[in-house]
Design a protein around this nucleic acid. Sequence first.
DNA 1: TTTTATTATCGCAAAATTACGATTAATATT
DNA 2: AATATTAATCGTAATTTTGCGATAATAAAA
Lengths: 106, 106
Amino acid sequence: MGTTKTELFTAEQKRMAALTKALGHPARIAILMHLVNINSCVCGDIVEKIPLAQSTISQHLKALKQAGIIHGDVEGAKTCYCINPKVWAEMKGMLSQFFGNFKNCC
Amino acid sequence: MGTTKTELFTAEQKRMAALTKALGHPARIAILMHLVNINSCVCGDIVEKIPLAQSTISQHLKALKQAGIIHGDVEGAKTCYCINPKVWAEMKGMLSQFFGNFKNCC
DNA sequence: TTTTATTATCGCAAAATTACGATTAATATT
DNA sequence: AATATTAATCGTAATTTTGCGATAATAAAA
């Protein structure tokens, strides 16, 4: 076991789960906060900002990339990581709808 | 390894990661969607709505409870699961701020 | 009081996640 | 051409997650 039974759920449910799962680690939140705060792409100084090994950060960046939340553009020897505005807007809309739908019931 | 180095991150980062991680599975999204859609507490028919074993659903409910997103009130033989309005509002605010802070930069 | 219904927990197995050091690949610099 | 610099990938180990059946625990119903 250990595998999610993905065929049992809707595309929307799977998409939302994949996106929130990608957010679900402090290091990945920290990376995204950094990108949002500096309000530009980050070319090569993420390892200095987050106290984890270079390989570990690379894995977290990969996870964010696979979810589509960021993209990395090779710029010579460095890679520039940017928030993907399209997916960012998708998440923003998806989550605001999701959280807005709840009317305090009981 | 396999353990997150939680001491390296801020309380905000850890809280946000814990909440989004709890959302990060299709079954848990489905459970929350169901609770939002019927707009009331659910007493005992979650197993019928989601095609997973009773014990598996119980575990997903536990995960949502531990994050504080829902609470379960024992109502006789059944347990009524409700969205926790306080934490719901917390997430809504946290995420809307997070996603609102990004200005399309590049 | 015995039986039934409902939910939680235990124990297990398979898979995924997290983290790191070491290595590789690709580009810049000297 | 040789040497840095930067980022990705590989290999490994510990831990966590996911899912299920079996078993408890609790309360309702007969």
